[in-house]
Simulated scan of single mutants.
Amino acid sequence: MIHWEAHACLPLHPDADFSPLDKLRDAGVHYVSVNVGMDMNPVAQIVSVLAAFRARIAAHPERFVLARSVTDIERAAATGVLAVGFDLEGALPLLGQPDMVALYRDLGVRQMHFAYNRNNPVADGCHDIERGLTPLGRRMVEAVNRAGVLMDCAHTGRRCSLDIMAASSQPVIFSHANPLALVEHGRNISDAQIKACAATGGVVCISGVSAFLGMRQPTADDVARHAAYVAGLVGAQHVGIGLDISFRQDALNDNPPGDYDPAYWWPRSAGYDSGITSITYTPLDTWQQLPSALEKAGLSAAEVAGVMGDNMLRVARQVWQPS
C-alpha cells in the first residue's frame, strides 16, 4: 500500500526548511506533491524555488528522491525514502505557451491546474466570474495530456472544471478538494464535478483545510467523513488524500515581489479572513489515524488502501510519461 499526499506547501523560498518532509515520511507517507508556485508568483520566483528544491533533494538521496515515475515511488517506499514531485497552481506561469508544460515537467512538475481562485487567460478561478475554458485553455489541456502531467482541477471554477474534464483525454484529479454537499464554500466541489472527475477515471483527494471541512480544528474523522461521501457517490476507487498542509516558516518571507494583494487572491467575500492566515489544518498525525477513521466511516480494508494512495498511484501509472 502506497500512502500518497497529493498536495503540501513549503515556503516558496530557496531557503525553505525541508524538515516537514522528513516528518511526512515518518508519518508513513511515501510520496508527496509539493507546490512550487501559484498564479501570483512570477516565473523568476518559481524557477528559483525549483532550482533550490531540486538541489536539496539531490543532496540527500538517503532522505528524498525526485519522482519521475511510479517505479521511483515504489522503490522509494521499499527503501524508506520519501519520493517528491512538484505541482503548479495556475496557468500564468506558463506565459501563454503550451510548450512550457513539458519544460516544467522536465523540472519535476508532475501535476498542475490552470487557475488559482481567480480568472486568467486560460481558465476560471473558483472565486471569480464564470466564463468556461478558453480556446487557449483547450490547447493547454492538450499540452498537459501530451506531456504526461496530471491534469488537476483544484481551485478552478465549476463550469470551467467541467470543460477541462470533458476536453481531457486522460484522467483528471482534484488534488485537494471537498464535497460542496457537506460544506458550503466556493472552494468545495459539486456532485456534478465529482461525477465528472470519476467519469474520466480520476480521483478526488480530500483536503484537511478547516474552512473546507467545516471544522475549526479538523481531525482524521472529518477527513474520513468527506472521503466516505465521495466514495458513496462515485465509488471509493475515485477517492484520495491531499491534506494541503502549509508548513509555514515565519522566518521566511515568501510573498511574491511587487504589488501583491492577498485580499484579491483570497477574497473576504468568499469567506477568507486576512488572506489564509486564519486557516488551520488537520495535524500531521492524521496520516497515521486515517486508516482506522476510514474503516470507521464504512470503507473496507481494500478501499482504505486505495484512498490512502493506491488510487492516485493507479492514475499516475496511466498518465505519467518519462521526461
Rank of each mutant, 00 (worst) to 15 (best):
R187W: 04
G186S: 08
H176R: 05
V204S: 13
D191H: 08
Q249W: 15
F212A: 09
D191L: 00
V172P: 07
V203R: 04
W266K: 03
H185I: 08
C205R: 05
N253T: 13
K195M: 13
A228K: 06
A181T: 15
A224R: 10
C197W: 07
V183A: 03
D244Q: 06
S175Y: 13
D221A: 05
T219Y: 15
V223F: 06
V203C: 02
V230N: 02
A236M: 08
R225L: 13
R216V: 10
C205N: 15
P218W: 05
P256E: 15
D244F: 11
N178R: 06
A227W: 10
H226E: 13
A199V: 09
T219A: 09
G232S: 08
G214K: 14
A228G: 02
A192D: 14
R187Y: 10
I194N: 00
G232I: 12
Q237L: 00
S269H: 05
A198Q: 06
Q237W: 05
S210C: 11
V209H: 02
A181I: 10
I194A: 00
Q217V: 14
G201E: 11
Q217S: 15
Y229K: 06
T219P: 02
Q170W: 14
S169P: 03
S175N: 05
V183Y: 04
E184N: 14
I245K: 03
A192N: 05
G208C: 05
V234C: 01
P218S: 14
H185T: 09
D250L: 12
D254E: 04
P179C: 08
S269I: 10
A224C: 09
G240I: 07
F212I: 12
P257L: 07
S246Y: 15
R216G: 14
I241T: 06
H238P: 07
G201D: 07
F174C: 15
V183W: 11
V234K: 07
A211Q: 15
Y260W: 12
